[in-house]
Simulated scan of single mutants.
Amino acid sequence: MKKIRAGVVGGAGYTAGELLRLLIHHPQVELAFVHSKSNAGNPIHEVHTDLLGDINLNFTDELSYAIDVLFLCVGHGEAKVFWNENKVPDQVKVIDLSQDFRLDAEGNDFVYGLPELNKHKIKEANHIANPGCFATCLQLGLLPLAYAGWLKEDVHINAITGSTGAGQKPSATSHFSWRNNNISVYKAFDHQHLGEIRQSIHGLQPDFNAQLMFLPVRGDFTRGIYASMYTKVVRGIEEVKKLYQTFYADAPFVHISESNPHLKQVVNTNKGVIYLQQHEDTLLIISMIDNLLKGASGQAVQNMNLMCGLEETRGLQLKASFF
């Protein structure tokens, strides 16, 4: 089978580094170029040092459209600038990992790239807006309830994320000496991912008008998101479990756990793991992903597979970093 030629724009950050690791080992992908203005001419393995021996390409500041798929790994706000300044040919499929095209708007033809929600649309799309990491984790936990029309009350959410979620550029709250042995809440109740979560919920349950009471937490670990959510659901736990199992029957990366899970089960994988527990009429939902894989680059490759007619799991059968 002819290999898919892929290009990456914005190749120096954590998300791009994770994407490169997946693409260079994907059996049906040929990496054509990695674009970076700040690193042009430098060997890729000097920035992503774990790729020493795996890749011989240098970063480039030139674009080529002799490709099948273009990944945009630029910062939030920069994808729209790139899109407006560059004429990407119609035959090139584009997957944007920023937040710029996630919300529905006039003139926006990007399909929201959560495969567990929009798999059939993704297969037919030319342009994909890859979901955010928190948004992916929380939606995996909540969308089955919205599908059934069972989200009637406020949802209380506490979710802790690894330091890689803040990106590669150093800041006061991502510096090792601050982050290590530390914890803090940020953007309480108004995190930027709430818009795309509400958009997806309303697509399944238009009458949803309760609140998503979201407390994002900075963790002192490197990668992964662990979200605990609870809301009132007047249904038996077996009925709820059956709903989730049915909703994710065609979702190869989402797994319903019968035992209380822990974060190491998903780190370094493209999995989403969900656990359900009931206390009287309150439903507890635990949802976990790796923020750099299912929350970013792994999901982008999953979308590429669907867009290009490949098996959804191709190149993504990864082992968890369990020990």
Score class of each variant (00 low, 15 high):
Glu78Gly: 08
Val155Met: 09
Asn42His: 13
Ile201Gln: 01
Cys308Ala: 09
Asp190Ser: 09
Ile225Asp: 11
Leu143Val: 09
Asn180Leu: 13
Ala105Glu: 15
Gly17Pro: 01
Phe82Glu: 08
Cys308Ser: 08
Asp100Lys: 04
Phe33Tyr: 15
Ser38His: 07
Leu51Ala: 08
Gly10Phe: 02
Phe101Val: 01
Lys242Asn: 12
Thr161Asp: 06
Gly162Met: 04
Gln317Cys: 08
Ser38Ala: 12
Ser257Ile: 06
Leu292Trp: 02
Thr222Pro: 00
Val111Cys: 10
Gly203Ala: 09
Tyr226Pro: 00
Val47Thr: 14
Ile157His: 04
Tyr65Ile: 02
Met304Ile: 10
Gln265Tyr: 10
Ala16Lys: 08
Leu194Asp: 11
Leu143Lys: 03
Val34Arg: 00
Lys232Thr: 15
Leu316Lys: 08
Tyr230Ile: 04
Ser297Gln: 07
Gln168Asn: 11
Lys123Arg: 14
Asn291Glu: 14
Thr173His: 10
His120Met: 13
Gly236Ser: 12
Lys152Leu: 05
Tyr112Met: 05
Leu114Met: 12
Thr313Leu: 13
Asp50Asn: 09
Ala251Gly: 07
Val301Lys: 05
Phe247Asn: 01
Ile122Arg: 13
Leu306Ser: 04
Ser174Ile: 09
Ala105Pro: 02
Val92Met: 02
Leu142Cys: 07
Gly167Glu: 06
Ile122Ser: 12
Thr313Gln: 14
Thr60Tyr: 00
His26Cys: 07
Val74Glu: 02
Val34Gln: 02
Ser98Asn: 03
Phe214Gln: 05
Glu311Lys: 12
Ser98Glu: 05
Ser38Leu: 13
